[in-house]
Design a protein around this nucleic acid. Structure first.
Lengths: 225, 225
DNA sequence: ATTTTTTCTAAAAATTTGCTTAGAGTCTTA
DNA sequence: TAAGACTCTAAGCAAATTTTTAGAAAAAAT
């Protein structure tokens, strides 16, 4: 895990960095906000830990700048300001957590881990994608439902993968054609129907709760029951 | 935003619920963990706020159960336990935030908002349009009025979507023909009347306040009462 | 008040969409 | 090269949706 620590007080900064490094975190340190912004432009971090009070720019402003740049890295603010109002303005500026000084370094570590865990929950980067009792492993191409192994062909797998990556919305057939088949509009959408049919036989047939559903006239979606 | 509050101490529970409700949060209250789990099985929440110390099951265990069930709703723990170790074990159990009692209700609110904001960041597109108690979700294609689910055909949905996107003005029939039917002047506008009729049956019929109105000689518009 | 125009409604007709099955190509592997 | 597995097309049937039709109801105009 890579963490960017922005803290202008050198002593605090180095003791935090030392502790995080000990805990297996790859920590980069910046002593002011401007430097931090530059680093963020060049590389990506899992979590950003920033002080609120800094000489050149406060942590609130920093968060706003990052969010307006569409940078969605979790932000944890640390500050000597312990008033509710301070915390609220920090959180409202786009921070994900706010920890008042002095704090226990172990708590900081736990909060960083929690932020990291959550941002990794969204199936985007992980090897495995799951929904309910269905799980697919992108690297081994294995599929299981309720622990039971299911064997899919390559096309079946990529169709299922696409459906799972887009869980929570209805996916139009034309989009599936483009993304899974790399085809334009010319071809008949019947291929999809046939393959959805294959998937259903392998994944839903012997279970009570069906996961693949049809939205008439549009396409398909993943949902329990 | 829907929040589930699990808190066994009735006085604390109701004061939290009252405050959240005041702030526009739709709060459901459970007085023990078992009840909370049942509710979570039946419906989905944006954020779960749970006490740590409860008679039947502690918040730590609750979080573990939820995470093992693949329920990824953000969890905020509140507790009288203020020791670092308690916070760490809460966060490690899968909680996303930990707030020690006594706390300022405004801070709780800000932290709930932060959790909600983050979990919506990963939900790529949950574009919703609403007017009064009517809501349509462009990505899931779901329609609800006063929370009640309404099933529309594709044409009905796109007609309603067009009306809602143009709320606040009268939309001429010819414009609807062009935009929703992709047709010129050749066709009879009666199709629209028929479809407005369908929509009214599904959306307005069983409600006192009608939302779809006719501007005689021109077209239709969305307005309460 | 009557006529004309416009809108609403119900039902029939036409069209579109989806599921399923069988089989023909295509690619892999023994 | 043959057997097997995989991908795609085509066609029939069932179901759902969309359009048309026609008469009743409502609104505007004469």
């Amino acid at each position: 895990m890579k963490v960017l620590l922005i803290e202008d007080e050198p002593k605090t900064a180095s003791s935090i960095k030392a502790f995080l490094d000990e805990n297996g975190v790859d920590t980069e340190l910046c002593l002011n906000a401007a430097e931090g912004l530059k680093k963020i432009d060049r590389q990506s971090f899992d979590v950003i830990v920033t002080d609120v009070i800094m000489p050149d720019m406060d942590g609130i402003k920093l968060s706003q700048v990052l969010r307006s740049k569409q940078i969605k890295t979790p932000i944890l603010m640390i500050s000597a300001l312990d008033e509710t109002e301070d915390k609220i303005s920090g959180l409202n500026a786009g921070a994900d957590d706010y920890l008042a000084k002095p704090f226990d370094l172990k708590e900081l570590m736990a909060r960083i881990s929690a932020l990291h865990r959550r941002s990794n929950l969204s199936n985007l980067s992980s090897e495995k994608i799951n929904y309910e009792d269905l799980e697919i492993n992108i690297s081994t191409l294995e599929v299981t439902r309720s622990g039971k192994k299911i064997i899919l062909t390559p096309k079946e797998f990529s169709l299922l993968e696409y459906l799972l990556r887009n869980q929570g919305r209805v996916i139009p057939k034309l989009e599936i054609l483009e993304k899974v088949w790399n085809l334009g509009v010319e071809i008949n959408t019947n291929v999809i129907e046939v393959y959805v049919n294959y998937l259903r036989k392998k994944i839903d047939k012997e279970f009570t709760d069906k996961l693949i559903h049809t939205h008439f006239g549009i396409g398909y979606y993943i949902k329990k029951a």
